[in-house]
Simulated assay, not measured.
Amino acid sequence: MGKIIKWAILGAGNFAREHMGPAIHAASGAQLVALGTSSVQKAEPFQAFAPNLRVHATYDDVLADEDVDVVYIPLPNHLHIEWASRALRAGKHVLVEKPVGMTAAQIDPLIALRDETGLMCTEAYMIAHHPQWHRVREMLESGAIGTLRHVDGIFTYNNPDLANVRFDAAKGGGGLPDIGVYTIGSTRLVTGQDPVAITHADIDYIDGVDITARVSARFEGFTAHWVTSMNTHLTQSMTFLGSDGRIRVSAPFNAGSYGEAQVELIQSDGSIRVERWPQEAQYVNQVEAFSASVRDGVPYAWSLEDARATQAVIDAVYEAGPPR
C-alpha cells in the first residue's frame, strides 16, 4: 500500500465527530493524527477512537504541523474558501466540505491556487464514491432505460432549530447549499450534463435563507424537477425516467442511515431488478479515494470544477427565483 496519508481536521463539530472523523480512522491507508479545537471537551470523543491524536488549540497550529499531509475542512460554509486557501498555501492537500463556495465565482481563485501549488484540493462530495451511483451512470450510458426523458429528485428534512447555522444567511445557510448540491449534483454526476435553462424556481425564504425550493430545469434531451426543504419530513429519492424504463435510487444521499442503498431498474418488458449495497461506507470510500489520489495519483471522482458547475446551477436557481 505504501505511505500512510496523515489527516487533520479543522474544527470538532458534530458532522466531523460522527462521520468524517471515524471514517478517516477506519480508512485503509489513512491515519487521523491532528485536530484543531480549543475545546478539551469537544476533542475527547475524537481521542476516544484516536487516542494518539494531537489536539491543536488553533487552526493555524494545525496548518503548521509538519506531520499532516491532508487537511479536512468541515467549517461553516462561509469559511470554506478562506481555510482551504490557507491550507494550500501551507503545503497541505485539502478536502473541503460542500458547498466549497457561496457562489461559483468564489471557487475560481481556489482552482487557480490548487493549480499553482500542484496540491490536491476538492469538495467532500461523498456520493460520488458510492458504487450505487457508478451503477446508475452505467445503466444510463448502456441504454438500460432507453432515452432519458426526465429526472425527479427530492431531499427534505425538518430542522426546527432556527438558531442552527443552516438558517444564517451570512454564513452560507439555506437548503440549496446544504442539500440542493445532492439533487442537482447527482443529476450532473450520472448524466455528465449541465442544464441549459432553469425554467421554474419557486423558493420560500425565511430571513434571507431558502427553506423550501421547487426547481425545474431543462437539459439537452431531458428535463428535471428537484425539491429541497429544511422544514419537511425527511425524504430522499432520485428517479430517472426513460423511454423504455425507470431507475429509482431509494437511499441516494445518506445511504445506510436513511435506508439500504438500492437501485431499482424497471424495463418496458416488465422485468424488475434491484441491486443492493448493504455494507458500503461512502465516507470511508471517500477518504480512501482521496488518500490514493494524493499517494499514487489515482484519478479522483469529483473535482473543484464539478463543485463549481453545481454551484453555478444553484446561482442560476437563485437568480431565476423570487427575491430573498
Results as ranks from 00 to 15, higher is better:
119 L>M: 08
31 Q>S: 14
320 A>R: 15
146 G>K: 07
309 A>N: 11
76 P>I: 12
6 K>E: 04
223 T>Q: 10
199 T>N: 09
280 E>D: 11
206 I>K: 06
229 S>D: 10
139 M>K: 04
122 T>A: 12
319 E>R: 13
259 G>L: 08
118 G>Q: 06
174 G>N: 03
79 L>D: 07
136 V>H: 00
189 L>I: 03
133 W>M: 08
218 R>F: 02
156 T>H: 03
182 Y>M: 07
128 A>I: 09
131 P>Q: 05
244 D>W: 01
204 D>S: 11
293 S>M: 10
72 Y>N: 10
170 A>M: 02
320 A>E: 04
313 V>W: 02
301 A>V: 11
40 V>N: 10
116 E>W: 05
40 V>K: 14
7 W>H: 13
113 L>Q: 01
255 A>V: 05
284 V>Q: 07
251 A>N: 09
232 T>N: 09
28 S>A: 14
60 D>P: 04
124 A>M: 14
242 G>W: 02
264 E>Y: 06
116 E>K: 13
37 T>S: 10
183 T>F: 07
220 E>Q: 07
260 E>V: 14
133 W>Y: 08
239 T>C: 02
25 H>R: 12
136 V>L: 01
316 A>W: 02
147 T>E: 04
220 E>G: 03
305 E>T: 11
214 R>K: 14
128 A>F: 04
14 N>S: 14
99 P>N: 04
236 Q>A: 10
62 V>I: 15
311 Q>Y: 02
281 A>F: 11
300 Y>V: 13
215 V>D: 05
216 S>G: 13
207 D>F: 07
226 W>H: 13
22 P>T: 06
85 S>R: 01
23 A>Y: 01
255 A>W: 00
184 I>P: 00
112 A>C: 02
